[in-house]
Design a protein around this nucleic acid. Structure first.
Lengths: 323, 323
DNA sequence: GCGCAGGTCAAGTTCAGCTTCCTCATGTGA
DNA sequence: TCACATGAGGAAGCTGAACTTGACCTGCGC
């Protein structure tokens, strides 16, 4: 009978493109993979690999076999998930990847809650951009991907994955606080300081009010910056971009220092007091935040618990400026 | 990860009801099965077996796992079938079970044709009654079951199996030849002797003509005898059964000896000259002959070839009395 | 050319899974 | 009721499948 382990090695070579990479992913030496695939070729009675330079390439037959390997591996994973769902105790290691803001603002409370509810459960977190997360999920390197999506169709397709939006995060426009305090420093506290949040329910602004401002943007290739530029253009102007910074706290610092205006998602405003004027945008900009999993794990109790906790977080999330 | 071999052992225990039987089926010692299942229990983290007398019984969780094992095994079998279909050469061992008449009349020419077309293919044949064949097929002990079916709904259900009717075989009524030859022996040759078949296109008989005859029947529990009795009752009489014999050639011999009338399927008349008066019945009695396979093997070239050969046999089969 | 990276081969090693032999528990027939 | 057959499963030792190590070969870039 066809060896399942061998099939999985073949599958990994197909995904990662080389025997070396597959070997690393499966924690064995390239030699072992090579030998196993040689045996699989004999078992299958078909050529599976052909040399292509100093790499190998899968033959047509091998690709067909990989698709079978996928279904076989899926069936085994489904059995394991079903089995786990029969256990009373949620245990094991849950591997999560989240985009940076979520890794900072969403995951800590979620992980804390999970470890409180399920003391035997270990959760590991990696901060990956959404695209990286999805690839890692396909590669079976993580169990849950937390991704954001600006609804502009730029997200890579979630082919064959289970997506569940669990919260929406509004995008705000941040500008420097014009007036200085008596001692000459920028006037604290801003709304984002919990003690002073409510008193200043600043109304929404329109982007066109800032057509002549300097803009502090996320890096060019980020979705947020693309979405912002598109919104500016829709408002009738091309933003003057002064700086492009990857980290929202850097952007915020620049805005606070009066060097320009910037857009920031609500989650980025949660973790420290904000000394800037932050207002919703009209028409509103919002990003959707979703969990993505492999469908065969849907009923795994680890996954079920984590998704429930994410839902709970999303339900209780009050954006910094509710208005 | 869940061991596939262990799952298959569990599956076999589930099918066969005991560790001993499963061990025999999988060609290992009971001790090995016991050990593997103990490991599987640890892997699964769930009780799988519970003692029941000196046997074991599967727990609820184990039964659920068995269903997963079925789909996993099916997926592997499908991969193998697909792989085999990529090969140019049809090779391997095809295990066929056929009900006795088919084993004698159908399989020899089919097997000869197969070995001519595919010299590398080995075919093994067992003669099983239809019900036995289907069980063996479910147990994965054979690849193709050849079964008959009188259309009276008595056939066990073909749950999850692929059925293909490839021929119909009429049932005939055989009576002794009344006139004796000059030397006192029964007059040969009958129609079933090829040289003399056509000259005597005897018309159909009605069962009620034999309401007072003695009947030589297939054994009581056979489908043919049940169907025959039902037909007699429909014709308004209960047959006087003189003998019940399993083997059609014995029945035929008794009829030839003038000890009664009997019903015989066409295939039973193929292999030797018949010294009896044989006529179609009106209204006609017919049995359907079908091949049954496991669906995941449907495209296996071995199976495809064999089914094609059976089809060919069925298409070229001319019942002894075409009229 | 040299050096390096990816793949493969040969030899030695390890450990999963087997067999054999035994014990224990249960049911059955004298 | 006792002896014995039968099925499950534990202990010890064996075998071989699959691994690592350390070679070598080949294609590619400097």
């Amino acid at each position: 009978m066809l060896g399942v382990w061998r099939l999985q090695l073949l599958r990994e070579v197909s995904r990662r493109g080389s025997i070396k990479a597959a070997a690393e992913a499966m924690s064995v030496t390239p030699s072992a993979v090579s030998q196993q695939l040689a045996i699989l070729e004999r078992e299958a009675g078909v050529e599976l690999l052909e040399k292509s330079g100093r790499q190998v390439r899968l033959t047509e037959a091998a690709l067909r076999l990989v698709r079978h390997a996928d279904t076989i591996t899926g069936a085994i994973a489904a059995a394991e998930a079903d089995l786990a769902s029969m256990q009373q105790l949620v245990t094991g290691t849950l591997r999560v990847a989240a985009f940076p803001t979520a890794a900072r603002a969403v995951m800590p409370p979620v992980m804390a809650a999970l470890s409180r509810i399920h003391p035997e459960l270990r959760v590991t977190l990696r901060d990956f951009e959404a695209d990286e997360s999805l690839t890692a999920l396909q590669m079976d390197e993580i169990d849950i991907a937390i991704v954001d999506d600006y609804g502009d169709g730029s997200r890579v397709p979630y082919a064959g994955l289970d997506v569940c939006e669990f919260m929406r995060d509004p995008i705000y426009l941040a500008t420097a606080i014009a007036r200085l305090s008596v001692d000459g420093r920028l006037a604290p506290p801003s709304f984002a300081d919990p003690s002073a949040r409510d008193p200043r329910p600043s109304g929404a602004t329109r982007l066109e009010e800032f057509r002549d401002a300097f803009w502090i943007m996320d890096t060019d290739n980020s979705h947020l910056s693309q979405v912002t530029r598109r919104a500016c253009r829709a408002a009738g102007f091309e933003p003057h971009i002064r700086s492009s910074c990857k980290d929202f706290s850097v952007i915020l610092a620049l805005v606070e220092a009066g060097l320009g205006v910037g857009v920031l998602p609500g989650l980025a405003l949660l973790d420290r007091p904000v000394r800037a004027d932050v207002r919703p945008i009209s028409p509103p900009l919002v990003r959707r935040i979703s969990s993505v999993i492999r469908p065969e794990r849907r009923s795994h109790p680890m996954i079920v618990s984590a998704l429930a906790e994410l839902e709970r977080f999303g339900a209780s999330y009050v954006p910094p400026l509710a208005g």
